[in-house]
Simulated scan of single mutants.
Amino acid sequence: MRRSLPLLAAGAGLVLLGTANAQVLKGHNTSAPVDFSADRIEVQDRADRVVVSGNVQVTQAGLTLTAQRLTVAYHDAKGIEIDRLDASGGVVVTRGDERASGSVAIYDLNRRLITLLGGVQLSQGANRLAGSRLVIDLATGRSTVDGSAASGPSGTSTSSNGRVSGTFKVRQRPN
């Protein structure tokens, strides 16, 4: 099954405030084909969705998303057009040395927004950032990591202290 859709990526240029902002998906080809593979793919035509489960892997132009389950919501207008992707179960998104992970990812293709929830970890090389929610705006390339102790899956807290934390590499200068 192949579809064209953008996915997520974690970025650099992180700024720590109450929330942290990052520029992501710079130069990513969102029109490239998307490949799905999994242990099981079930098409539910009456519900206009596809359920992909078991060792799910989605790739597009250098981006890779892995999860245990992915639900693809679509509509049929001159062929199938994807509206939304919901991934769960150890979601990891990688591109080069960039990596984002969380419990759940929601990708709204119509609004061009990706939201990662639940113990979010964001890294690029030696730089690390952690929070409870990551929102990526694909239209602007801006991402925000939120540290609020919002409720996650099953009503559990997604952040133990409600703050964003990070570690950033400092340029080494000769003494």
Rank of each mutant, 00 (worst) to 15 (best):
G11H: 11
L17C: 11
G18E: 14
G18V: 15
A20F: 04
A22F: 12
L25Y: 12
G27S: 10
S31G: 06
V34C: 03
V34E: 03
F36Y: 10
D39R: 15
R40W: 09
E42K: 14
E42C: 07
V43C: 13
Q44H: 14
A47S: 14
V50G: 09
V50P: 06
V52D: 15
S53D: 12
Q60S: 14
G62Y: 11
G62R: 04
T66Y: 09
T66Q: 13
L70I: 00
T71W: 11
T71A: 13
V72W: 06
Y74S: 05
H75L: 08
H75Q: 10
A77N: 10
I80G: 01
I82N: 12
I82K: 12
R84G: 04
A87C: 08
T94Y: 03
R99L: 00
S101M: 06
S101Q: 07
G102H: 03
A105F: 01
Y107M: 07
N110Y: 04
L113W: 07
I114K: 11
I114N: 09
T115W: 10
T115D: 04
G119I: 03
V120N: 06
L122A: 05
Q124H: 11
A126S: 11
L129N: 08
A130T: 09
G131I: 06
L134Y: 07
G147V: 01
S148W: 09
A149T: 02
A150H: 02
G152L: 03
G155P: 01
S157N: 08
G162N: 00
R163S: 06
R173G: 15
P174H: 05
P174T: 13
N175S: 09
